[in-house]
Amino acid sequence: MSVSDMQPPVVDLEEQQFARAKRRESIAKWALPAIMLALAIYSWDRIVVWNDIPHYILPRPGLVMQTLTADWAMLSDALWVTLKITLMALGVAVVGGVGLAVLFTQSRYFEMAFYPFAVILQVTPVVAIAPLIFIYVDNRLAGLLLCAWIVAFFPILSNTTLGLNSTDHNLRDLYKIYGATRWQRLRYLQLPTALPYFLGGLRIAGGLSLIGAVVAEYVAGTGGIGSGLAFRILEAGYRLNIPRMFAALLLIAVTGVVIFTLASLLSHALLHKWHESAIKREN
């Protein structure tokens, strides 16, 4: 690009303006969020200083970072626990959601019979179900996993089902004419068609499984070794250790952002060659 830019081609004023606007936008895309974030943190700091707010009400951002490093041993253990539950729940949600979706599209009757259960599980708030789960499920990890899974699997199920049913009707006819088996149709036609839908569901489910894990920890509430970030927040709250609450909160937020980013990258990697959503248009 830069080589051809050096040569003097005919570039009229409008084109120059376009190019400038494009360059400006590509810088702003990264710079603007970064500046706004820095500004927000700075004003947080100033508000605390100017109003003499004590650190047990609202700590300065610097103190939060200090706490994060000072308590890193404990917080990183907790992060690992929460992360483990989140990822396991997401994994089970992917397997369960896609598996159920495939069963649904293989048999209308199966879908009619079991779809209501999926909806009931989805619409009932997990906070309401969680206490029961912890009564019936002895293993704490299994209970946490179950809670996170209930929240996370539905978007994958409903998106994948939608995708599997969205195949082009002409392609379906074509497969029929060429004598495709049910399995061939699923593998070569329905699953690729459903991929973009599934990936959309995955991005939502990633965030939801983290929410599910955190909510479940709140409800489970037992401490000791093997407790996650949510429990650390509760515990720090009881002890009025507000900086640690913020530090744990920060870790949860970062985890959520990382999961979302990874899911988006995966989506781009799998779709950029062919799908409309990943194609950049000139003009």
Binding site: N170, Y188, W274, H275
Partner: peptide, 22 residues
């Protein structure tokens, strides 16, 4: 068909492969 009815995720040769592949 009236529409080209190609699989967008597959390359040209993979699309042409389909009748044999099935």
């Amino acid at each position: 068909f009236q529409e080209p009815t190609l699989m967008p995720w597959a390359t040209v040769e993979q699309n042409v492969w389909l009748p044999h592949r099935l």
